[in-house]
């Protein structure tokens, strides 16, 4: 049984379709990513999956329960890390865990023995009595992750879990998510950090305007969707150079500001040509998920 199956999901707000016929299915034990620019429908999709928003049409089955009809029962086996911190600021770290466990109908006697272990997992050992207001952003995020584990969920839903964190804090979260996966938990993650998705997800879907534009393993997507090599060309002359010369040496060229992105099968002829343009600086690298993302969703700003 799939931990989460979403079929033909649609949701509109004021006549604008935010989710426009989304289909995906998680496999037990995998980490699945939902990638998309701001406003692509990621958070709305998660809200529908939790039964917090009624879809206009479509079917959702969460840990075997139909949603929204039996969303409450389904949420018994789900852990959620929301996009914005909503720890209880009036409580200590330990109280946050106890009070949250009560929402699952757990007895205090069942929660208390788990507190030490949960805090240790979150890298917060010994912080039982710490006031939430004294914790750093990274610590709060980790405590939110620990809170999401209080009911020992089968499936974790994480909405942009590392947004706003420094690199050290992000790496720690990633490492913990990998550990949870090794324990057999299934993870659904939304993000717009490509390195995060590439590192964590076995499979991912890129969504834009509420529709899925690509799905697959990160490596496979890069292989299928895009040329293998990228040469980035920088400098004041780069746009002019790109307009006149780049096409002859590249399969595809995109210009953004003073940078030209040349997508090529083989970079050698282009690099040889560029040797004659000392004013232009170049960076030659393999194509990555960000290139795929930008190709599929465009370079315009989404606000």
């Amino acid at each position: 049984m799939s931990p989460l199956r979403v079929a033909a999901l649609r949701k509109s707000y004021d006549g604008r379709e935010v989710v426009a016929g989304l289909n995906f299915e998680l496999q037990r034990g995998e980490c699945y990513g939902l990638l998309g620019p701001n406003g692509a429908g990621k958070t709305t999709t998660l809200r529908c999956c939790l039964g917090l928003t009624a879809p206009d049409s479509g079917e959702i089955t969460l840990v075997g329960e139909p949603v929204p009809a039996r969303a409450r029962e389904a949420r018994m086996k789900i852990g959620v890390v929301p996009q914005f911190d909503n720890l209880d600021p009036d409580f200590t770290a330990a109280e946050n865990l106890i009070v949250y466990g009560r929402y699952f109908g757990m007895k205090d006697a069942a929660i208390r023995p788990k507190i030490g272990e949960l805090l240790e997992f979150a890298g917060l050992a010994g912080k039982e009595d710490a006031n939430i207001r004294t914790l750093s952003g990274g610590m709060k995020r980790r405590l939110t992750l620990a809170r999401a584990l209080v009911n020992d969920p089968e499936l974790l839903l994480l909405d942009e879990p590392t947004t706003g964190l420094d690199p050290q804090a992000r790496h720690l979260i990633w490492e913990r998510l990998k550990r949870l996966q090794a324990q057999g938990k299934t993870i659904l993650l939304t993000t717009h950090f490509m390195d995060e998705a590439e590192r964590l997800c076995q499979r991912l879907a890129i969504i834009d305007d509420g529709k899925m534009v690509a799905e697959g393993a990160p490596r496979a997507l890069i292989h299928q969707q895009i040329e293998p090599q990228v040469v980035e060309v920088y400098g004041e002359d780069a746009p002019g150079w790109a307009a006149r010369e780049a096409q002859a040496y590249s399969r595809r060229v995109e210009v953004s500001g003073e940078t030209a992105f040349c997508y090529v099968e083989d970079a050698a002829p282009l690099l040889a040509h560029l040797a004659a343009w000392p004013a232009l600086r170049t960076l030659h690298r393999p194509a990555n998920l960000e290139d795929v993302f930008l190709k599929l969703t465009g370079r315009e700003l989404r606000d």
Binding site: R72, R75, D88
Partner: peptide, 14 residues
Amino acid sequence: VQRTWEAIMNAPVT
């Protein structure tokens, strides 16, 4: 302000 209700409704509480 605190989004406490939002956190609670992610648990099996309506």
